[in-house]
Design a protein around this nucleic acid. Sequence first.
DNA 1: CTGAAAGCGCTTACAG
DNA 2: CTGAAAGCGCTTACAG
Lengths: 343, 343
Amino acid sequence: MTPRATIKDVATVAGVSVATASRALNDTGRMSQATRDRVQSVALELGYRRNSMARGLVQRRSFTIGLLTNDTYGRFTLPVAAGLSEAMVDRGVSVFLASTQDDPALARLTFEAMQEKCVDGLVIANRRLDRGIEIPTTATNIPTVYVMSACPEGAIGFNPDDVDGARVATQHLIDSGHRTIAHITGPEAFASSRYRVQGWQSALAGAGLTPWGPAIYGTWAEAHGFEMAKRLMGAGSATERPDAVFCGNDQIARGFIDGVTQLGLEVPGDVAVVGFDNWEIFAAATRPPLTTIDMGLIELGRRAGVTLLDKIDGKPVTPGLRHLPCDLVIRESCGARRLAPAS
Amino acid sequence: MTPRATIKDVATVAGVSVATASRALNDTGRMSQATRDRVQSVALELGYRRNSMARGLVQRRSFTIGLLTNDTYGRFTLPVAAGLSEAMVDRGVSVFLASTQDDPALARLTFEAMQEKCVDGLVIANRRLDRGIEIPTTATNIPTVYVMSACPEGAIGFNPDDVDGARVATQHLIDSGHRTIAHITGPEAFASSRYRVQGWQSALAGAGLTPWGPAIYGTWAEAHGFEMAKRLMGAGSATERPDAVFCGNDQIARGFIDGVTQLGLEVPGDVAVVGFDNWEIFAAATRPPLTTIDMGLIELGRRAGVTLLDKIDGKPVTPGLRHLPCDLVIRESCGARRLAPAS
DNA sequence: CTGAAAGCGCTTACAG
DNA sequence: CTGAAAGCGCTTACAG
């Protein structure tokens, strides 16, 4: 229960002033290497750990940032948080996790807490590109970046490039030889639904193909995909059915594949499927495993963090929304095989 | 870009000393209500926000805690973090999210960062009851509680009561009229697998029933359940097959149900299924929706937080591991219907 | 190359 | 009821 060593203790034991101890510990100032080494070894010996509250007070920097989010499931926030933390940890910056749970009152409370904690910056992570988090961020000038969120005028934001991701997904189906490609997705009210529809349409247009009917909006749930499998694949002759489906997320794709299987048809033989999200737990478990689009959320978090730090350090950062590229992850649901069978 | 107001600004404007301002703002000390009101309204007007670094420095309390975790998927940590945050936010305590990613070097780095930040306490959340996080927590005396983790001698821990949860699950199957109940679960190396096997056995023993074969260990994945469906249900006559299966997690249950469906059999008609985890995204999406066990992770997080705060405040806390009860969540996979059909 | 001193923004005995 | 002063543990001009 001995109180932890302070810089004063280190200075005393090392036989130097606190000023010198501070400089030795921070590798600043000029002094004999011998002195520096002595101070550092004393610090180690004493188990000295700098008090970042004291340091922060004088440097006007807390070396903390806040991650404000209202993503309850964590499907999106978790990878973002992982990338963010990773980018922060070796820069000595710690991350406050602040969940706002879609509750404006809680958001305000949380935001005030972040102000008291003197966070150097804020990452606002959402799960909808067309929604923000209700905080009175205006009243202050805490550097802020937005991730997977609506991005106010003049602010800095990082979103996945949904349009391009959808285009890549659809192009992959086209390249695999499919020609009648349907699209089943989430609610039309979601910006990401609409962006993905755009990408689907543009890939088809680029290949001179006609969409297989209009985009089929619904919910983001398995049940939607399952029902649509019955509707699209359960009636009509093979030529009337789509030969491929691009699904707006992996859950819909999962439901669709299950529905198709239940009809006695095969994926990708009778219909190819590409999903969106690369939610491993779904994508790897479908039968067959799902080819899908990865939004690069970890990278999104990392980039957001690095950019926030730049902004905090006063480096010039161009405002605006960045769209980071999505990646195609090929598994087995659209007929692409990594190994050609021996002939 | 005006710097934020300090307590000195508030004091000056209100025409009092900083000491009085501090007392007015903290609702401590004795003073005329008029003075207190005046100070507080000035603070509001100036948008004053207390600097918790300065406060922490003198009070030797940072009003922060650290959540150390190595649960990458976040399946377990997220609800725990949600419960924890919720319990902390209105006590003015903020939570650092610190992911250690199963990397001892990173864990050490993170732990040191938490020390520099002067966290008042630590929650160590894991995803295996039989594993800890490698940190040299010994060297310090930061109050610590463990969640879903191995709990060192003399420490405080909160785990779900796996044995009882499994017993409740099995008992529910028994109560629903099933007699030959198999158990498919994860790797034997996991403590939670073994606990759940215990619960399954004890419920059966209590009802004078014999287990349908030994527990079937495997992986925590859908594929394991899927394969076992083929093996258990795909051969033999109806009387040789189990009439119910308790699965060690929802993914296994999902795979099992899909396998059963694919055999042309029905759940719960031909075989009833109960899962474990209540991972909504799986449990609600199985066909039929899955009856399962909820580990009460949110409550686990809340309890851990409250207890940690007690410990930080110096209140007496009995060391040891607490097992919090699990809840049965009834859906449709074991034949229990909420409404009796009209006769 | 090194140290004495001021100061970051608070809280809290201590005095009156 | 209120204030002057010390001090929390650091960093950083300023001087030497």
